[in-house]
Design a protein around this nucleic acid. Sequence first.
DNA 1: AGGCAGTTTCAGTCAAGCTGCAACTCAACG
DNA 2: CGTTGAGTTGCAGCTTGACTGAAACTGCCT
Lengths: 149, 149
Amino acid sequence: MESESGPPLSAAFLAMALGRRVRERVEDRLREHGIALRHLSALGHLHRRPGISYSELARRAGVTPQSMQDTLRRLEQLGAVERTTEPGRGRTAMLRVTDEGHRLRLAGRAVIDETDAAITGAGPDDHLTQSLRAALDRFPLEPERGAGE
Amino acid sequence: MESESGPPLSAAFLAMALGRRVRERVEDRLREHGIALRHLSALGHLHRRPGISYSELARRAGVTPQSMQDTLRRLEQLGAVERTTEPGRGRTAMLRVTDEGHRLRLAGRAVIDETDAAITGAGPDDHLTQSLRAALDRFPLEPERGAGE
DNA sequence: AGGCAGTTTCAGTCAAGCTGCAACTCAACG
DNA sequence: CGTTGAGTTGCAGCTTGACTGAAACTGCCT
């Protein structure tokens, strides 16, 4: 997208470019394990809070239950999570991470750690981490600017 | 997306989160002008280097010519760019930014500047900008890890 | 003249989100 | 009781923004 050739590098452009590159790299590495970022994220939530349902998971991840269902379908098909309750329409599911799921989760963490090292320059350059955290803090998500009439 | 609730905040996660938020904000503001980031980017390239073609533009932006064509269709339809040559299949196009295009480009720049101020904390906090630039430098794009055909 | 790289254009595909809706559960209320 | 209504799962289809494939054509080079 924003090519190298060029000009102007404001913090906004830099943030978008870095975010994109990091995401691409992580997704790339993760793909070798057959998952994407959203799967890793779901595994993380489910690990910290076993037994929660599709909808709860969706709420935490900030997506619709329908989207989360897709994510979980993939994870179930990989044998990474399983439901401890009967499937069925209004039937709230109880989900848990399997051994395979933990294996995947740790592989994912390794990818993140590796990327982390690359991004901070292999040294403890918390300048970056600190700056990022500060920027995130003072940059809250948009307050639903849909109908401020 | 990576929700707030949670734990672990490595530089990689932070970078992805910040990049996403910034992008969302910019796209949001830009949408009010009827364009997206890729349109603004194309306008920028075309402004600096008038007369270049679809394919050249695509090359600079790092997308396929087919994708760039979509972007430009929108811009032409808005009257922001126009071709100074006849349309036609193998016929290399010469494109230029119109007055309306310049208006749009400046509006876009204003959005970026505004976001820039918000992200750096309204003060000259070049810590962030510096850190981002450094991280980007030491984090080159993936070297086409897909079988060197 | 012929070949061929480059360009524009058309068409279809894909991924990851979304909305809409149907079917169902379960707790609370009258 | 019964009924109502919020919450959930599941299914289908739409949207956006990229992509690949292939066709039509230009222009240059030999």
